[in-house]
């Protein structure tokens, strides 16, 4: 089954991004496809490569980048929400791309299921 994911919160403050990540990993392990992960609201903060957590903590941004590279995931950051919060191509982490809200609507139309993670 083809699953669309919406992440509405940034890393670390809320568990949303962790939950979405673990969900995606489990879905892929069960043989499902992730149609797209769309980052909206503060969720766009998951996409900055300037993130530097302490060494003994998980690196939420790099974890998404790796999951995307390993599984050819489409990680899309909403352009309007990103620009509001200072996320641009110049500080975008690997595996993410910035695009319009239409990508979220398209995802909800094309995916078999849409799961929202937020606060």
């Amino acid at each position: 089954m083809n699953l669309g994911i919406l992440v509405n919160e940034g890393p670390y403050t809320h568990e949303a991004s962790d939950s979405a990540y673990h969900f995606c990993k489990a879905a892929l392990a069960s043989g499902h496809q992730i149609q797209r992960v769309f980052f909206y609201h503060d969720g766009v903060n998951n996409a900055t490569r300037l993130t530097e957590p302490p060494q003994d903590d998980r690196h939420i941004v790099n974890r998404w980048s790796k999951l995307a590279a390993d599984n050819k995931l489409d990680l899309v950051v909403c352009v309007a929400a990103a620009l509001r919060r200072g996320i641009k191509d110049e500080n975008l982490a690997a595996g993410f791309r910035i695009s319009g809200l239409g990508q979220l609507i398209e995802s909800s139309i094309q995916a078999d299921r849409m799961v929202t993670f937020g606060d």
Binding site: Y40, A80, L101, G102, I105, I109
Partner: peptide, 15 residues
């Protein structure tokens, strides 16, 4: 959330 939700709805209208 209210404002950005509304922004999604406006884009959705085109679909």
């Amino acid at each position: 959330y209210a404002l950005e939700s509304l922004e999604v709805v406006l884009i959705a209208a085109a679909f």
